[in-house]
Nucleic acid binder design. Structure first.
Lengths: 172, 172
DNA sequence: GTGTAAATGACAACATGCTGACATTAATCC
DNA sequence: GGATTAATGTCAGCATGTTGTCATTTACAC
């Protein structure tokens, strides 16, 4: 992706002249509306950066973000997932997930296993290769997660996760 | 997108049988690493839901998420943006933004205006049509932002925004 | 100034994601 | 049980996004 912007820069490009359709010095103490829209824009940006991080991290494993997202969703699920279930967890269309999982089954990373609760909709599980890949994924992902949170208080992470889930519930 | 999952469901599909590669009852009080990975997965999901929200909201305006993101980034910038600048704000590649802005200039929503600071890299600005579109966008976006934050304390929004920006800075 | 590195525009190839449509299966209501 | 509604698999068309590459311009170190 190759990004290199000043980081807390939701409102300026850093190298341009004023246009100013709206005044917005936002750091703190701005109305909730502005705060929220800023948050949304920042979330878009963080989303892109997280995908870039993951891709860089998993390049050596031959994974792409579409793939490690699926593997991660399956591995973190405690109950087994169908294709539409993965799509719901990832906030994507079931068709997009179906295409990825089809290829990953062909590649031997995933298996479609019988679903006792649904004749047509198979459970998507990790094959032996898939589990091995997941373990290698963990080997890079865990240190990354630890490293990037060591200076962040647990309470802030919890507050953020709670808010994010609250928003997810709203938009579901 | 058509999503309808139980909302705080990072770990189960809701309609499957156990697979359990890893135990993870997460609601609170889990190690930071797990908390963080949960947050990342939730952010992916929220990202998808926010895009779906925006698309539904702007359908009548003939906008797509690629377009309202660009319009939003330009409108919220206080200093004017170049194509690579928009890409940095949105966490995308400059090529993807270039393609969208080229089409939007053709469609009369944007203008490339001379950049005194850079001979080749034009500033992207809203045309009259673009400003009108942005105003219509605001008319649906503002009530949406207000409505979705009325039950959320400002402090939580600020904490979350601060954390998100902190992560952006890390991954930049 | 000069040379080197970085940023930018342009193009191509490819991966990913969405919507719409249709048929089939599952769930629900009566 | 039967009918209706919802969920799922499948396919097609299209929009979006990424990487790679190359030429040009800008920025920077010396």
């Amino acid at each position: 992706m190759a990004l290199s912007a000043p980081a807390n820069m939701p409102l300026c490009g850093g190298d341009q002249i004023p246009v100013r359709l709206e005044k917005r010095e936002v750091p703190v103490h701005s109305p909730k509306r502005v705060l929220f829209l800023d948050l949304v824009l920042s979330l878009f940006r963080l989303n892109g950066l997280l995908i870039a991080e993951g891709d860089a991290m998993t390049k050596q494993l031959g994974l792409t973000h579409a793939r490690w997202k699926v593997i991660g969703a399956i591995a973190l699920s405690s109950a087994g997932l169908t294709v539409p279930g993965i799509a719901r967890v990832l906030g994507q269309s079931r068709q997009a997930v179906q295409r990825i999982t089809d290829v990953m089954v062909e590649d031997g990373l995933l298996l479609y296993t019988e679903n006792p609760k649904h004749k047509r909709s198979a459970l998507v599980t990790l094959s032996e290769d898939g589990k091995e890949t997941y373990n290698m994924l963990r080997e890079v992902q865990d240190p990354w997660a630890i490293e990037n949170t060591e200076d962040i208080p647990t309470e802030e992470l919890e507050t953020t996760l709670r808010l994010v889930r609250r928003l997810i519930k709203k938009f579901n």
